[in-house]
Computed example of a mutant assay.
Amino acid sequence: MGEIEIYLADDDEDDRLFLKEAINLIIPGTTIIEATDGQNLVDLISFKSGNLTLILVDMNMPRLNGLEAISIIKSQPELKNIPTLMVSTSQDAALRKQAYQLGISTFITKPTTMDGYENIARGIKICFVDQFISGLDSSI
């Protein structure tokens, strides 16, 4: 069975920690690759055939912000179809629209509770992981 890799890009260490804990609780066995900013994400990201690869990215980060990082990633043919979820406190409708135009799959407002982070992990499991595993099972 393919592995599940999630690239988690956020300059806020606490937000990374909460998301990582929630994902590990809801989707055990997931490999989480942490990036501290958009440039770090671009430097780290790769795609391995047979794996489920997802990107969780914050909008406001140093060096390259989330929008700039997504633009670079989505311009690469081998990376452009990786599901990308933007998790941000930004309420700016124009920035959200720009994120969708660049190719994000969904925009999620950063939660303020651990339950909120767990809800994000549940959504990832239902919308992406379960579908990926179901696709693997049907190909056997």
Rank of each mutant, 00 (worst) to 15 (best):
L136N: 04
S105D: 06
F107S: 10
D37M: 06
V42T: 11
V57W: 11
I27Y: 09
I124K: 00
Y100W: 11
D11Y: 07
L56M: 09
D43T: 09
L8R: 06
Q76P: 10
D58C: 07
E13F: 07
P77L: 10
M59G: 00
F107I: 05
T36W: 10
I120W: 12
E34W: 14
R16A: 12
T84Q: 02
K110Y: 02
G38W: 05
K125L: 06
L95W: 01
G116V: 03
I27M: 04
L8V: 10
I140D: 10
M1P: 10
Q98S: 11
M1S: 09
P77R: 12
V57A: 15
I133R: 11
L41F: 13
T31V: 03
Q39W: 13
I124R: 06
D14S: 14
D43W: 08
D12H: 13
A35Y: 09
N60A: 02
M59V: 05
A22Q: 06
I72A: 07
I126R: 03
D92V: 03
G29R: 08
V129D: 00
L19S: 07
P83W: 05
F128E: 00
L136E: 03
I6N: 04
M1L: 10
R96L: 14
T106G: 12
D58F: 09
S71H: 12
P62Q: 13
L17H: 07
L8P: 15
V129C: 12
Y7C: 04
P83Y: 04
T106I: 03
